[in-house]
Amino acid sequence: MSILQEIKNAVRSRSIHVAYVDVGSCNGCDIEVLACLAPRYDIEQYGIYVHNNPREADVLLVIGSVTPQWVDKLRDIWEKIPEPKAAVAIGNCPISGCVYARRGTLTTPPVENYIPIAAQVPGCPPRPTEILSAILSVAPLIYKDYEEKHR
């Protein structure tokens, strides 16, 4: 492994930029992601920085089952994120549609049909600590030796 790669690994493990996109949820998971920002969980001590800008994100948190407006736009957002990138599905909604996947619904879950998902955090809603540990465990898998693997 080259020295450059080692430096990159070290830097990347302490700097994860997160964007979240809500594609039709009940808000429950939304506010649990927000709760991660609270000083009690202190997401920034792990070097995770939450801001809602896909163009500088590394990890995309997807919340919710897919509503009609997002069918094409979710893909757009995914393409705007620079490589290396990963998407994490938060809650039951993006995994299976949760309570919304019934007769008469307007949503079209799962999210996997639209963008590749790297990790899933089931729960309705999951606790902030679970979200946090999911981000922390998925990030090294994607970013470690990224350049060496993808030459």
Binding site: P68, Q69, D72, D76, L106
Partner: peptide, 13 residues
């Protein structure tokens, strides 16, 4: 940008 036909959604409402 990103304009979409909203008529069906408005009809649903």
């Amino acid at each position: 940008l990103y304009e979409k036909d909203l008529r069906q959604m408005k009809y649903n409402i």
